[in-house]
């Protein structure tokens, strides 16, 4: 698979300068790490190693601690997000109603695992906790769109809807 690597040369873009600004802005605050990670995630869409390294140096926090925080909070991501972010709810209600099978089907159709992005950068796949739409279980969200009461057979149609967009 020819995944685009955006953490090397192209990363030396103005976004890295922006990151410096973010770090400088928060540098002397107590508990600066979380706000910096939030803003960096907004800036880059995810938090690759290069970005974490820079934050580690800038805030003088060990890289491993930063990695620990990122992997602890689900809102942070180590992987780039696709243009369409697919989230499958694995909360109890959805799970009972078969969201696990729907997730499997999505994996199969897209050829990626949870936390990955398709080669064309279009779709990323995530499992998430209860989204508060249990009445619609099982639920899948694609960006802001919510799909409820799904069956495995619906998966293909839905993906196709976005494929050509």
């Amino acid at each position: 698979m020819s995944e685009k690597c955006c953490c090397c040369a192209t990363m030396k873009d103005e976004r890295m300068d922006k990151l410096d600004e973010i770090i400088n802005k928060h540098r002397n605050e107590k508990g600066a790490l979380i706000p910096v990670l939030h803003e960096a995630q907004e800036l880059f869409g995810y938090l690759p190693m290069e970005v974490q390294k820079k934050i580690s140096e800038g805030l003088n926090v060990p890289l491993t601690e930063i990695y620990g925080v990122i992997t602890f909070y689900t809102q942070f991501s180590l992987q780039p997000k696709g243009k369409y972010k697919i989230q499958v709810c694995l909360g109890t209600a959805c799970y009972v109603k078969g969201s696990g099978q729907i997730l499997d089907k999505l994996k199969e159709k897209l050829g990626i695992n949870v936390g990955e992005v398709t080669g064309d950068g279009k779709f990323s796949l995530e499992a998430c906790r209860c989204v508060g739409a249990c009445g619609l279980a099982p639920v899948v969200m694609i960006n802001e769109d919510v799909y409820g009461r799904l069956t495995v057979d619906d998966v293909e149609d839905i993906i196709n809807k976005y494929k050509d967009k």
């Binding site: 601690e65 990695y67 602890f72």
Partner: peptide
């Protein structure tokens, strides 16, 4: 450091 969460929590290095 501790990384990941819940049942998956482990002590590991970055990445």
């Amino acid at each position: 450091d501790t990384t990941e969460r819940g049942f998956k929590t482990i002590v590991s290095s970055a990445f």
